[in-house]
Write a protein that binds this DNA or RNA. Structure first.
Length: 439
DNA sequence: TCTGGGGTCCTAGGACCC
DNA sequence: TCTGGGGTCCTAGGACCC
């Protein structure tokens, strides 16, 4: 039996912990550049604010409906997430942290009453962190997800589902008749793994509810879609195909990309941006103890500016030897950038991706058979220690305290600098920003 | 004026080999 | 006018997730 624990409207809920005056109000959290809504309170959802909707489209709701917008504060959310995850982990022998705001628990051998467990977990997380969660139980991960969805909706929209399913819902102990009624009332799009495109295609085939889907023929669906669909079906029917994965594996790719505050046209500024991004992905790469085999760089104009010339080139540059050295990676990224850059375009976005990742240990004995080749610069000296020192300084003094030569931020205001005018303090991770109580 | 960012897995089709 | 066949590996792109 599995549980899925999920924080309701995670980013908004984190903000509300420190600003209780936001409770009950429509609140959104904005992406980089204060560009789009990436989290919405229930009240904001009720106002019709959609996921990833551009801020300028809903900005008028500030005055019309008291909508409050905040810039994303990921440092705060990451820290709150760790606290919540640690509490949830106490309730089962195995936990898979699936995203910043949700985890699966494997309840194998946990004997007690699941509803009691769910309610206890929920109230403990609420009491210790201030975050509201929903808990779903099911005999497969997909059903636990579905149970969680029902728990949320029953809480948020009274009448959509029976009230007793709110907040904590167990699909593992439900009478067949009630189960059938629930599945009839749930649209296929709510199922984990069934997205927008698939929903449209299923709808054309007359499959609208989860109950419809369960009646469909597995082989036919497998033929029309793919193995993912087949697995989803089997999971919905109670056959577990997906296990809780508690060994968090290293990422296979690490990316940093961002749209700019304004258009960027000249190469030096793009080099600056790409160098900064590379510094960030390099740090993440070392954190997970990997080396990268290649660097992928892309720049792009804005597809929304339809009357401007469009250009979205990218390039992948393999490294002569896998590396985690910021200087090596930046030099490759900048070379890739020079190769794809064309003057005369208004670039709106850039990104750096490290790919072909491998564990650092394995790299020891893969020295180039032919030794360093002439045209390849020899690896910089003292790589590992220098990078360790760099990481330590930046951990201690903030992300941009120390950077590799050439990646310093421009003294002049840069077009790419992102706007973040509404960020809340990093209450839990910066002493100088800690919450203070007023008498 | 302003339009998210970070990941995973699967598949089709081309390159290459015998 | 005919123009192998089957296997494997790699990559780009699509769909999905949060």
């Amino acid at each position: 039996m599995f549980a899925l624990v999920d924080v309701n409207n995670m980013y908004v809920s984190c903000e509300r912990v420190f600003r209780p005056s936001l409770n009950g109000k429509p609140v959104v959290v904005l992406s980089n550049n204060d560009g789009a809504c990436i989290a919405r309170s229930n009240e904001a959802k009720d106002l019709g604010v959609r996921m990833a909707q551009p801020w300028f489209e809903v900005r008028h709701l500030q005055r019309q409906a008291g909508l409050v917008a905040l810039s994303a504060n990921f440092e705060l959310y990451g820290d709150m997430s760790s606290r919540m995850m640690a509490i949830a982990a106490e309730y089962a022998p195995r936990q898979e942290i699936y995203s910043i705001d949700e985890c699966f628990l494997d309840l194998e051998g946990v004997p007690q009453d699941r509803l009691a467990i769910g309610r206890d977990l929920r109230s403990r997380v609420l009491q210790w962190t201030g975050l509201p969660t929903s808990v779903g139980f099911g005999p497969t991960k997909t059903l636990a997800k579905l149970a969680n969805h029902i728990a949320k909706m029953a809480d948020r929209k009274p009448g959509s589902y029976p009230a007793e399913l709110a907040q904590v819902c167990d699909l593992g102990q439900m009478a067949p008749a009630q189960m059938e009624a629930l599945l009839r009332a749930t649209e296929v799009g709510a199922v984990w793994g069934i997205g927008r495109k698939t929903t449209t295609r299923l709808s054309e085939a007359g499959i609208h509810s989860v109950a419809d889907l369960l009646r469909a023929d597995t082989a036919t669906l497998r033929r029309q879609f793919n193995v993912v669909m087949e697995k989803t079906l089997r999971e919905l029917r109670g056959t577990s195909c997906l296990d809780v994965n508690d060994a968090h594996e290293a990422n296979q790719q690490i990316m940093c990309s961002r749209s700019f505050g304004g258009a960027v046209t000249d190469l030096p500024e793009l080099i600056d941006v790409v160098s900064q991004f590379t510094g960030q992905v390099a740090r993440k790469l070392r954190e997970q103890g990997s080396v990268a085999g290649a660097v992928h760089v892309f720049i792009a104009t804005s597809p929304y500016h339809r009357n401007e010339a469009q250009h979205a080139p990218s390039a992948t540059l393999p490294l002569p030897q896998p590396s985690a050295d910021t200087r090596v990676l930046i030099s490759a990224a900048v070379r890739a950038l020079r190769g794809i850059y064309r003057p005369g375009f208004n670039y709106a976005k850039a990104g750096v991706m490290l790919v072909d990742l491998q564990p650092q240990a394995r790299q020891q004995d893969t020295l180039d058979l032919f030794g360093a080749q002439e045209e390849q610069a020899p690896a910089p000296r003292g790589g590992a220690e220098l990078m360790n020192a760099l990481d330590a300084l930046n951990r201690r003094f903030g992300r941009h305290a120390v950077t590799v030569g050439g990646t310093s931020l421009h003294a002049r205001p840069s077009a790419h600098a992102s706007r973040q005018e509404r960020r809340s303090p990093r209450y839990t991770t910066r002493l100088e920003e800690i919450a203070s109580a007023r008498a």
